[in-house]
Design a protein around this nucleic acid. Sequence first.
DNA 1: TGGTTTTACGAAAACGTTGTAGCGGTGGTA
DNA 2: TACCACCGCTACAACGTTTTCGTAAAACCA
Lengths: 336, 336
Amino acid sequence: MKGINMIQLAKELGLSVSTVSKALGDSYEISASTKKRVLDLAKQYNYKPNPFASSLRKKKSKQIAVIIPDIVNNFFALAVDGIESVTMNKHYDTFIYLTHENLEREKAVLEHLESGLTSGLIISVCTGKEGYGHFQQFYENTKLPIVFFDRVPDLLQFPKVISNNYESTFEATLRLVKSGVKRPVFLATEEPLYTSIERRRGFQAALISQHIPFTDDMIVECSDDMDKNYLIIRKLLSNRKRPDGIFASIEKYAITTYQVCKELKINIPKDVKIIGMTNLRTAALLNPSLSTLSQPAFEMGREAASLLIKMIEKKSYAAANDIIVLNNEMTIRESV
Amino acid sequence: MKGINMIQLAKELGLSVSTVSKALGDSYEISASTKKRVLDLAKQYNYKPNPFASSLRKKKSKQIAVIIPDIVNNFFALAVDGIESVTMNKHYDTFIYLTHENLEREKAVLEHLESGLTSGLIISVCTGKEGYGHFQQFYENTKLPIVFFDRVPDLLQFPKVISNNYESTFEATLRLVKSGVKRPVFLATEEPLYTSIERRRGFQAALISQHIPFTDDMIVECSDDMDKNYLIIRKLLSNRKRPDGIFASIEKYAITTYQVCKELKINIPKDVKIIGMTNLRTAALLNPSLSTLSQPAFEMGREAASLLIKMIEKKSYAAANDIIVLNNEMTIRESV
DNA sequence: TGGTTTTACGAAAACGTTGTAGCGGTGGTA
DNA sequence: TACCACCGCTACAACGTTTTCGTAAAACCA
């Protein structure tokens, strides 16, 4: 009995297919007694509606896509967790696509999804200089709702879920300076994502507020490539005039910095103080324990998914300009 | 021009819908010139076949489901990464479902997937005493291919991808003993998963091989609940006769052990030596650096996905008894 | 009683594909 | 010349739903 369908149900009940369909959909047109008969038999046969037929006919599905750069990263893992907690509840199915910071891959995924496979998208963009035309293009072609989170495109008018990068980086930098740092350095991503631009701004503003003259060499651009990255940071810390304070704007930079310090026998926090932007659960167990600015990743995922589903279900919902801002949390540990 | 379809394409080309369908499917029945005309127009209009119609008609989809207990865990994150690397290549779409060690949720997901939404499943089971009847049930109802990985059900005849838990735990335990451990303890999961049973076996066998008498209190059952877990480990290490060697059979137990040692000022590795089963990238940066037994998570995901797709595409492929075993990797650091 | 409304259901047409069966026309073979 | 194979294409019937429209019968109202 591999998959019974409505037609067979209808036949056995002596009803028409439309009646069965309506009964299962709990339509007002159907009497309570008939509904019960239908539901009972459906349950008895373990009837499951065919999602393809349903989606085809209704021209929409209960499926969404999540497009992120990486999953082996606590931040994104937590965000996916948050997203899934919502979609599960609302009985949506969640596709996952990983771009690995590859713009071509990101474009390919979007292109693929123009088929209408999903009813909405949750995206954290990958780094890249080429702008965000493909998102605009996708939207024009499909008119499907999109919610961006964390790494959001700065220009496009789409709903977004972000965290208070500017303010929290400001505070973190302040904290570094107040604990004695004279030559702070901001480890930045190669490609200027909006997210990191905000963090840079916060960094600079904090310096200015403390009357520390900002110079260009206080921003060090790192690389997505772990090896290159290592060299960059190693060079930075080998320098005679090396920084005495580091703000690592993403997780892996903090980790690499720790590695390099360990190798060069640079003492944290005596020689250099560090605050890292990360959701690492092991931050407290590092040697020394790492001070962190952590993002509310789970909540960001949750908010993004809630918003998306709202947009999907209420066509009227004009959320194009919605920006939800959540707060990062600073935890000062031994590294400062 | 929101989604052109075959009918419109056919009309514009002066061809029948079937011809267009076959041309797009690169059927031998269609002449090269016609194919070209069709492909060109399809590209020009950015035609995307409707996946629902296609799946409905063909009675199969290019969609698979991944069901795992957790994503905020380096092992599973890496595994998903591996899976996605394959599905992306083969142009499959990947659904993700998180059970959070909740058996009811696991059952609900399976029940949901009986609709035939996906063409196959990749599963790592959640802990639970109730056995694995629901998987058997699912299979009987749908006959869909399933591949289990890492946490596999011990009895069921399904293809599996695992790592050499017995052998590698044997070696790790041996290493502990050889470095002077007299009273080793194995931190075990609450529910006896096959995976952890194998690890226990390896642990015991290693002790026996070294003529260390095995006693029941050498296995300490931890909890999935972080708080309870903390108490259990704290109690263990507060004991006058506390162990001088610990094998943490899963990631979070190792982390909690570190926390507790830090609090109780127990010196690692002098007072207690530790090896943890984990894929933590920060293991080397912990204080002291953690010796690990790490699983080839990415590769396991990759193997599982490859196997599943093979099963989906070649109906003949009788892989029911396939078991792929990959090797764990031991890295000894300061904690031993 | 005649008329209108409401209730509960059914017939049939979508939704966009794919696969089977069939059909003219051409070329080759006996 | 008759027969057959084959090429390149078309018609049409699925696949399993949902939704619109229609309609008997029952209920209501004056």
